[in-house]
Design a protein around this nucleic acid. Structure first.
Lengths: 208, 208
DNA sequence: ATAGCATTGTACCGAACGGTACAATGAGAA
DNA sequence: TTCTCATTGTACCGTTCGGTACAATGCTAT
């Protein structure tokens, strides 16, 4: 019998995938068991609290990844534009150009969000705040920076919705490309034309 | 015994609410029955195809509303900026400043989207196309117009995600306010400062 | 009045649900 | 080796699932 999972943490990616695909209510223990390779016995051994504890663990795992890979880097950036630029690359990779849903966003939309409302709100507010800090470092006014940060995070979430709905990664890349450019512009960082072309073959416009 | 529903169409708002709140998989017949006031007998009389037919009917209903109230007006606008402006008002009303989820978007994110993929994709692509047409009418380059339209529709979806997650209608209004301003700007329509203040107390910046 | 048909409540189906109990199994420490 | 305890598979619990069957109830038209 093949061993897919050796410890609790190994189950998290599979769990995350199931919750992403089926939502909290739609993620049955059968799905979960199949995706993780763990039987009910093991699942309830690792997560005595059942589905709710599983979801909480997945959200905490995702949160930790974003905290270290994105939020912390944004908040403590010395070269803010470079870090913002890197954020968009990381986001494109993590969400697979919009083909992979944002679980935190999905949970926030659903009715089962109540037990996780604080985690969901914290995730987004810390993302916005970290991005705002990075923008402010370049001398942008605090209120403008907050608006830009909110708009960018919302735009990323919307880009996921749209590119999933249209089943087109290009949509995700065009939209986030626009957001990236606007943020870097606001930070006084002149985006090279060739750089834009390299990133996003053709779509970009203005400021050649 | 009170009669809540008199014909098939009367069940659609209740159905939509249940699907919005619980998603397709999470919307049980018990929930549906409670929200519509219809027993199983009536539900399967009106919708012999079960949940799938119910969801299809709801999506068609929503689609029709957007088609007549928003898409058609955008596509055939004579005063394009005014219609775009009205679109944002309509969207704010329909989505209750982000507290009400976009069912089409939710379905697109879920795993049960397959039977409705065409409807979901059609909804968003027609929205984008209608908005693009309105923008092009003011002399904006076609490619730029498409980018602006995509960004606006994505931004609205993202604003819903964010404002639900943060449980704050102000977030929705700030983000859509930015989008509104950017679109009207691009269409050469100078937004009056007083008008912005009236719409969104305080948040706006630039071009006083 | 009554025939006909749309509408409805209720009982019921097999399957799947989330969750529990527990005995069998494994690896590591002594 | 033997003891220990974390890990696992499996049988089982009561509940709820989506869906069906059907008899009872209304309207409407004649």
């Amino acid at each position: 019998m093949p061993r897919i999972v050796a410890e609790r943490a190994d189950a998290l990616p599979g769990l995350a995938e199931v919750f992403r695909e089926h939502g909290y209510e739609g993620a049955s223990l059968t799905h979960i068991s199949a995706a993780t390779g763990l039987g009910k016995g093991s699942l309830y051994h690792f997560f005595p609290g059942g589905k709710e504890e599983m979801m909480a663990a997945v959200l905490a795992d995702i949160d930790a990844w974003f905290e270290t890979e994105i939020f912390a880097k944004l908040a403590h950036a010395t070269d803010a534009p470079a870090v913002v630029d890197a954020m968009f690359d990381a986001v494109d990779g993590y969400f697979r150009s919009g083909q992979r849903v944002c679980l935190v966003g999905v949970v926030g939309l659903g009715s089962a969000r109540d037990p996780f409302a604080a985690a969901v709100a914290g995730y987004f507010s810390r993302w916005i705040e970290a991005l705002r800090k990075a923008i402010v470092k370049r001398g942008v006014a605090p209120k403008t920076a907050k608006l830009l940060a909110e708009e960018a995070v919302a735009g990323i979430q919307g880009a996921i919705v749209l590119s999933r709905a249209l089943d087109d990664t290009g949509t995700f890349q065009r939209i986030t490309g626009q957001l990236r450019q606007r943020l870097l512009d606001a930070m006084g960082y002149s985006v090279l034309w060739a750089d834009l072309v390299k990133r996003n073959k053709g779509a970009a416009k203005s400021k050649p």
